[in-house]
Amino acid sequence: MIECKHISKIYKSPSVESGQSIETSALKDVSFKVANGEFVAIMGPSGSGKSTLMHILGALDTPSKGEYLLDGQNVSNLSDDDLADIRKNKIGFVFQSFNLLPRATALRNVTLPLVYSDTKKEEREKKAKEALLSSGLDEAHFNHLSNQLSGGQMQRVAIARALVNNPALILADEPTGNLDSKTGEIVLATFKKLNKIQGRTIILITHEKEVAQHANRIIHIKDGQIENSST
């Protein structure tokens, strides 16, 4: 279960004119809950603070004020290395630009998180294959280099990589942004399936209404504040 309690994020940047620091509020008093097994979309235009929110939800960054509870654990005031542990054990990322290692095979890309979680060698391949199958990649492509795959295939490899550690939360940041609408549909269908069949908790961040509509619930965000939640 995920709970955000009055989260604010303030960035400080030095002003060119006065030399004093200017405070920019990216998030203002954001509170919401996501239950286990939910498929939620966070939607908002660019500059709305949704990227900042994703960074906090993904334990890449910590809030300036407020508390963030992930799977019952307070993630608000952890050190860099502790945050890395949280990301390793509880979060799977899917990025807009896939971020696969270009010189490695699909299988190798999916085993990468297992390398850092000290999984035994024999188990890695088994787990990676399971993840790739549930993300819908054809078995024929398992040993292809990732830069030889199509965009849709690449994003499935990325989804498999997010799944392989069996995380509490899958965070997808504009997962269809670099795909054409048809492949985008297939990727979104994969998320839906994972949510329905495997009961995965998924948070989808997007600025497109059509994409957000695939989720069970949409959280609208604008100017760093939650406008309203709709189901």
């Binding site: 890449l60 890395a84 542990d85 054990n89 990322f93 971020n99 990468l112 850092y116 550690n165």
Partner: peptide
Amino acid sequence: TREIGLRKAIGAKKKD
């Protein structure tokens, strides 16, 4: 740089 970012996002620590 991006690869390093990814490795960190999926749980690589500084020392890794």
